[in-house]
C-alpha cells in the first residue's frame, strides 16, 4: 500500500502544537513581562542566548511552530472549500514555514 504522506506533516504539526502550548507562553511572559526592561536584564539574556545549545533549542522551537502553522493554515483553507487548490496551498504554506525557519536561523546566528 502507498502510505499517505500526512504522518510526516502531522507529526511535525503535533510536536509544534505541543511545544507552542507549553513553551511559548512561558517565554513570552518571562522575556516580555517578568524580566525588567533594563540593561542588566538585557545583558543577562544576551549571555543566556549566546549559548549554542539554547540557540539550537530556540531554532527547533521556531521550526516546529512554523510547521504547526503551515499544517493548520493549509487544512483550514482546504476545509473552507479550496480543495481544488490543495497542492498550491500546501506548497505555499510550507515554503512560508521554511522561509520563517530560515529567518529564525539567521537571527539566531547573527
Amino acid at each position: 500500500m502507498r502510505y499517505s504522506n500526512e504522518p510526516l506533516f502531522w507529526s511535525l504539526f503535533s510536536a509544534g502544537g505541543m511545544l507552542a502550548a507549553l513553551l511559548l507562553p512561558v517565554l513570552i511572559v518571562l522575556t516580555g513581562f517578568v524580566l525588567p526592561a533594563d540593561e542588566i536584564a538585557f545583558s543577562h539574556l544576551q549571555d543566556i542566548f549566546s549559548n549554542a545549545l539554547i540557540r539550537l533549542v530556540l531554532f527547533a522551537l521556531a521550526f516546529l511552530v512554523f510547521m504547526h502553522w503551515a499544517n493548520r493554515f493549509r487544512h483550514t483553507l482546504v476545509d473552507m472549500g479550496l480543495k481544488s487548490l490543495h497542492t498550491p496551498i500546501s506548497v505555499l504554506s510550507y515554503v512560508v514555514a521554511i522561509a520563517g525557519t530560515a529567518w529564525a536561523a539567521l537571527v539566531l546566528l547573527g
Partner: peptide, 12 residues
C-alpha cells in the same frame, strides 16, 4: 489511529 499510522510510516 493517527499515532499508529505515524509509527508505521516512520518504520517504512
Amino acid at each position: 489511529a493517527k499515532i499508529q499510522s505515524t509509527v508505521g510510516f516512520m518504520r517504512s
